[in-house]
Amino acid sequence: MDDAVRLESLTKTYGSGDSAVTALREIALSFPRGSFTAIMGPSGSGKSTLLQCAAGLDRPSSGRVLIDGEDIVGLNETELTELRRDRTGFIFQSFNLLPSLTAEQNVALPMRLAGRKPKRATVLAALAQVGLEAKAGSRPSQLSGGQQQRVAIARALVSRPAVLFADEPTGALDLTTGRELLDTLRRLAGGPVPAQPGGPGGETRVTTTIVMVTHDPTVAAYADRVLFLADGSLVGELRAPTAEAVAARMTDLAVAR
């Protein structure tokens, strides 16, 4: 299977000796191209550490992380920076848009900071992927919270990354806006969703690999599968998840602890 990301025996330990804390234990996972995976677990389960190691933001203590088939663990800081810029994208709770720049300028900014001059068509295509091409000239203050987060997604997509990492992407959004954002992520991963008034809808041939950390079963249910972590270990997987099934699994984990 063609994997955008693969983790092999991934272990992460903080500290040493008696004070050592193992955040991840021998994790073996693959994220196929075009898949949408949610990662869940109790507080302290290791889900954020897993995301950071998989994205090259933190180095594992042992094991391998392969993005596009390349083992990134042995890369130096310059090589890692280039990989993160060119082959991965990131979405966080905060939108991190510059208020003085338009949506188009915000999307183009990372490439400009890297010394590149992005083609306007490429930037507009990224905005079109999230249904915001018509808002290219709007500043953040002229956009809703959901639209701002979609600009942040377009910014992450403009370099056409192999994988898009999302850390609680709906955390700063209300329920309705959060659902609209999740519909956008479903489209990017190639999944059909109902058309939204004033926005894109239906099938799409765009396929982006998405790895998302969330604590919300309703949010996780938008993914193709949900992975469950506990005490740094992978303890379960749920495919074609429903919010109810995810919530029940999380309850079981809490009881087991």
Rank of each mutant, 00 (worst) to 15 (best):
M1L: 05
D3S: 14
A4K: 04
L7R: 03
L10R: 08
T11P: 07
T11R: 04
Y14T: 10
S16N: 09
S16C: 02
G17T: 09
A20N: 02
P32K: 11
M40F: 02
P42C: 13
P42S: 15
P42H: 03
P42L: 14
G44R: 11
S45C: 10
K47H: 09
S48P: 11
S48N: 11
T49G: 13
A54W: 06
L57E: 14
L57V: 14
R59V: 14
P60Q: 14
P60I: 14
G63L: 10
G63A: 09
G74W: 00
L75G: 07
N76C: 10
E79C: 00
E79V: 01
E79F: 03
L83G: 08
R84T: 09
D86L: 10
D86I: 04
R87V: 09
I91S: 11
S94M: 09
L97K: 11
P99E: 15
S100C: 04
T102K: 08
N106C: 03
V107I: 08
A108R: 12
P110F: 11
A114T: 05
A121C: 01
L124N: 10
A126P: 08
Q129P: 09
Q129H: 13
L132F: 05
K135I: 03
K135S: 05
K135N: 02
A136L: 04
G137H: 06
Q142R: 11
S144Y: 04
Q149N: 07
Q149A: 03
R155C: 05
A156G: 05
L157C: 05
S159Q: 13
V163E: 04
A166L: 03
D167A: 14
D167E: 13
P169R: 12
D174Y: 00
D174L: 01
T177W: 00
G178K: 06
R179D: 14
D183G: 08
D183T: 05
L185K: 00
G191Y: 01
P192R: 12
V193I: 06
P194V: 01
P197C: 06
G199L: 03
P200I: 02
G202Q: 03
R205K: 14
R205Y: 02
V206C: 15
T208A: 06
T209W: 00
V213D: 13
H215N: 13
P217C: 12
T218K: 07
A221S: 15
A221Q: 01
Y222M: 11
D224F: 02
V226K: 00
F228Q: 07
L229V: 07
A230N: 10
G232D: 10
V235I: 13
P241N: 07
P241E: 12
T242D: 02
A245V: 01
V246I: 05
R249V: 04
R249L: 04
R249E: 15
D252T: 13
V255M: 09
A256I: 02
